[in-house]
């Protein structure tokens, strides 16, 4: 057995992750989660409104756009969190 084992096996520099960094990371993620869901819905609605104005199908494309946008937002959040969980 080695005489001097490193205290922190996470990295050889001995820095490790500090609690402040964890809080900052959590803060970033929380903000991004909220933005992704709302932006998905917004983009979907705008795309739907554009399609509706061109095809005169109000409000079908808007509703479909809203639902798809929400789904895209939730999918984005899922990918974001799942990657982070794998990393953490």
């Amino acid at each position: 057995m080695a005489e001097h084992e490193p205290h922190n096996t996470q990295n050889s520099r001995g820095g490790g992750s500090n609690p402040y960094q964890g809080a900052l990371v959590a803060f970033s993620l929380v903000g991004q989660v909220g933005l992704m869901i709302s932006l998905g819905a917004l983009l979907g609605v705008f795309a739907g409104l554009f399609v509706d104005s061109k095809l005169h199908t109000t409000p079908i494309a808007t509703i479909i756009g809203l639902l798809l946008g929400l789904a895209a937002g939730i999918y984005g959040v899922f990918r974001l969190i799942s990657t982070f969980r794998k990393a953490g």
């Binding site: 983009l43 895209a72 999918y75």
Partner: peptide, 16 residues
């Protein structure tokens, strides 16, 4: 649809 979502995510990242 998931492929389209990925495309939409790039736009969302830029805006956010």
């Amino acid at each position: 649809i998931v492929g389209l979502f990925e495309l939409l995510l790039e736009a969302m990242r830029l805006i956010s």
